[in-house]
């Protein structure tokens, strides 16, 4: 099995897309945050590799070509950011302050809890990018010397947590303004939270997607500074 699959460049790409589509179908049928297509795809591929005793390298041999497009795709995030320019201009002080406060809260929280749990520097920088979009978080984790695979898992699960509890958290903190809700959700839980924000309303969705890019950029700078603290 290994030797045949090893020769097939397309196996990795093929199984990635098939499992992702299965995930998308499941998500469509039961609209629950935990049924995230990305999570389902990753889980199914892991099960496949374990059951058929296929090496990760065999999968990665073809699948790595998928990752090659991550850098240009991240650059392309400039387009949705540009489209949010008008709403940003209207409330820019409140929005920038809110996103900055969120990014700082995330870094301080990870720092304090990493010290409490006595994590290593490598584990600490792995967690620093947890609230931002995977595209930026992956690159950041790599730059800081973190364990990229764990960063990806943590980002995805953070997004699911944010998606599931967004409404409850807004109620808990008495956040009633749609702009503030969107900023909070996007700052804490990137694209997966934004999916929830879009269900909550148009302003919430637009503000949440704006926070993805801005928070990602701010977190890069904050994380680099914070990586020297511990």
């Amino acid at each position: 099995m290994n030797s045949f699959l090893q020769d097939s460049v397309f196996f990795g790409v093929f199984i990635s897309i098939v499992t992702y589509e299965i995930g998308a179908l499941i998500k469509k049928k039961w609209n629950v945050a935990i049924f995230n297509p990305l999570l389902i795809s990753i889980a199914l591929i892991m099960i496949f590799l374990l059951v058929f005793d296929v090496e990760y390298e065999t999968y990665e041999y073809g699948a790595k070509y998928l990752s090659y497009f991550l850098t240009p795709a991240t650059v392309a995030l400039a387009v949705p950011l540009y489209e949010q320019l008008e709403p940003l201009k209207k409330n820019w002080k409140a929005i920038m302050a809110g996103i900055l406060a969120g990014a700082l809260t995330s870094a301080v929280c990870v720092l304090v809890m990493s010290i409490l749990f006595r994590l290593t520097h490598e584990q600490y920088v792995t967690l620093l990018p947890k609230s931002i979009t995977t595209a930026i978080g992956m690159g950041l984790s790599e730059e800081l010397g973190g364990i990229v695979a764990i960063t990806v898992a943590v980002i995805v699960v953070t997004g699911i947590v944010g998606n599931m509890f967004a409404e409850g958290i807004c109620r808990l903190f008495r956040i009633t303004d749609p702009v503030a809700k969107g900023i909070g959700i996007g700052s804490a839980s990137h694209a997966m939270g934004t999916a929830k924000a879009m269900e909550m309303g148009e302003i919430e969705g637009a503000m949440s997607s704006l926070s993805i890019a801005v928070s990602g950029l701010l977190t890069v700078i904050i994380s680099i500074l914070f990586s020297h603290i511990y």
Binding site: T134, V152, V156
Partner: peptide, 13 residues
């Protein structure tokens, strides 16, 4: 883009 994260996620193995 989500497809591009799959290999990194599977690397969790």
């Amino acid at each position: 883009m989500p497809l591009m994260f799959i290999p990194a996620g599977v690397a969790l193995l």
